[in-house]
Amino acid sequence: MIAQGRRVITEAMEAEIEALAPRYPNRRALVLPALHIVNRELLHVPLDAVVDIAAVLGLPPAEVQDTLSFYQFFPQEKPHGKVRAFVCRSISCALRGGDELLEKLCHAHGIHPYGTTPDGELTIEPAECLGACDFAPCILANDDLLMNMTPEVAVTELKKPRRRAT
């Protein structure tokens, strides 16, 4: 993974980041919001974007990369699927079939956990408690909470196109 030296963030993204600046007393606090904005648009945050964000915020790229790497949330090598499905594996979901749900979904879509389908449509990721244990087992697919899932229903749900995550 090396930076290509191309500018990848757009002026619109930069303007959106800049619009948040008055909320914070320094620009480092904009790192996480900026990462979210870029990831929302590019479905990943490649190293070039890290360099761009650092330039916009006036920070060393290493500081941005340091923060990014902590969260394991922003893919860098390649984009996640157009639908990013977080399948809960924590206790309340596990007690109601969460682990089986994850396994069957990965099998049905022919990918491993954290993998993306070859057409780039779907990424399936194990997740910790989604805060929706009243609907266990559950999945967060982009902005949609899929509740009380069975493997059968979930397989079809995850084939549907969805609005982008906000």
Binding site: H36, F70, F73
Partner: peptide
């Protein structure tokens, strides 16, 4: 008073109050 929403990035430790503060400052939590 201003109230601003700030979004985390799927890390439990950001709920610990000083982890939250570090995360809000743009650092690892």
């Amino acid at each position: 008073l201003d109230i601003y929403l700030h979004r985390g990035a799927a890390a439990y430790i950001c709920g610990e109050e000083t982890g939250l503060i570090e995360s809000l400052e743009g650092k690892r939590a």
